[in-house]
Amino acid sequence: MHVLYVIDSVSRVGGAEQGLVAMAPQLVRAGVRLDVAYLKESPGGFQPELTAAGATVFGVHRPSRAGRMAGLRALVRERRPELVHTTLYESDVLGRAAALSAGTPVVSSLVNSSYGPEHLHARGLNPWKVRAAQAVDAVTAQGTRRFHALTEHVAEAMAGRLRVSRDRIDVVPRGRDPELLGSVTAERRAAVRAALELPDDVPVVLAAARQQYQKGLDVLLEAWPAVRRHTPEAVLLLAGSEGSETPRLRRLAEAAGAGQVRFLGARGDVFDLMAAADAFAVPSRWEGLGSAAMEAMGVGVPLVCSDVAALRETVGSEDYAALVPPERPGALAAALIDTLDDAASAAVRVKAARARFLTCFTLHHVSGRMVEFYERSLHRRTL
């Protein structure tokens, strides 16, 4: 089976890019001849890992959408894949059009519950532009053979917003390799904390996310003074690339107290940071899956998450993570304090969460389901 995977970039920042590079070796081993086309220049990105996995990588960089569309169409005709798979908005719109113009079946991943009320009222987003993007997405979606959604929540939401039949959407989450994640050990914890110059007995809360409105890091920083009043020695680590919310987050961090909040920037060792933390916070306003929460489940760190639909679906229930209403700093602070104070209860949730990860989110399991999705899309399996 020959698949051309079209994605906006292969940078090391986004969840979609990380999901692709994690799954690529598994797909190739399963017999998929994998081509990857990316639209935005991505210096220092995942090109080497994709090539090492056995994929053939193409940068389709043009100064205009029309140019990128022409480049994709030419690539489809040159490579002649059996199936084109698109992920993220720009790639969805242009990749679908390029595939259809070349007479090639196309499938798309739905990685977020886009175009909802939360997007219309998000800081920095223009409601008219959101609706215009939705219209274009919906039009190009009509020619798409099947869709892959990360969660049932995304499938249900996007079926209505793109005006496609729900039975054309298959749900397959992202996965991770348990060996790559590793687990929490005293040696790993000590080594990471030593590198960060953090004593072993200092309570540490970690969040790992892009500094964007969706991720709710401002809510976490608004909650932090209450955590600090209860546990004055606690430290908050923020790992992730800068974004539109960075200036606001730095102001909130300054108000929370110098030295109590540390911005670590984009990191390649997030799993190690998780293993050194006493709690992992995911205060998102919305998610498509919640990859960071899923990874924390695999590593084995206590989770405190916003109780939004996709995150609840990923973590399961309060048996696996502390769930709090989104945009409620007081509730978030209380859950963090409880997690830091009651290590025994947190450990019970951690054990259950890791078992859930091993059942639902291992890379081997998820990759097999993705191959089945491709086969259904090519009518090689019963729909």
Score class of each variant (00 low, 15 high):
135 A>R: 15
275 A>I: 01
366 V>L: 08
367 S>P: 05
244 S>G: 09
201 D>M: 00
76 V>R: 00
199 P>G: 12
17 E>S: 09
7 I>P: 01
213 Y>L: 13
383 L>F: 14
252 L>I: 09
47 Q>W: 05
306 S>F: 09
345 S>L: 05
380 R>K: 15
2 H>W: 15
319 D>S: 14
124 G>P: 04
155 A>T: 03
85 H>E: 07
97 A>D: 07
306 S>A: 15
257 G>N: 04
64 S>P: 13
289 L>S: 03
340 L>Y: 06
322 A>W: 14
25 P>W: 00
70 A>V: 01
193 R>Q: 02
160 G>T: 10
340 L>H: 04
45 G>R: 12
136 V>Q: 13
319 D>P: 04
246 T>H: 01
138 A>M: 03
204 V>A: 00
279 A>V: 12
172 V>Q: 09
71 G>C: 01
153 H>L: 04
341 D>N: 11
52 A>W: 02
356 R>M: 09
295 E>V: 03
120 L>C: 04
57 V>T: 08
296 A>I: 03
371 V>G: 04
349 R>S: 07
195 A>E: 15
156 E>K: 11
22 A>P: 06
36 V>G: 00
82 E>G: 15
41 E>T: 12
141 A>I: 10
48 P>M: 11
290 G>C: 05
19 G>M: 12
198 L>G: 04
280 F>K: 00
216 G>M: 08
148 H>W: 11
357 F>W: 07
109 S>L: 09
241 S>A: 15
80 R>L: 02
45 G>A: 12
172 V>Y: 07
